[in-house]
Amino acid sequence: MAVRIDFGRCISCGGCVALCPRGALQMKAFHLSLIPERCNDCRLCVNACPVGALWPGVPDYGEDYDVL
């Protein structure tokens, strides 16, 4: 599971990048980017984001999980 970025809300302040202990978030030239393999959904960034642009990861139910 990895956090999700709401790009509609994100204003590229870089706070979460400085906060992430695993280097899972990076600031590209214009937007935030996530390296999902590095994220362990600790949610430090979700809590700290000043504009609420980060959301907790959703469980991965695999291919068998059928969305109704």
Binding site: G15, A18, L19, G23, L44, A48, C49, P50
Partner: peptide
Amino acid sequence: SLAPSDIEMC
């Protein structure tokens, strides 16, 4: 990387 207690989110 900064601890959450060592960063001000503005």
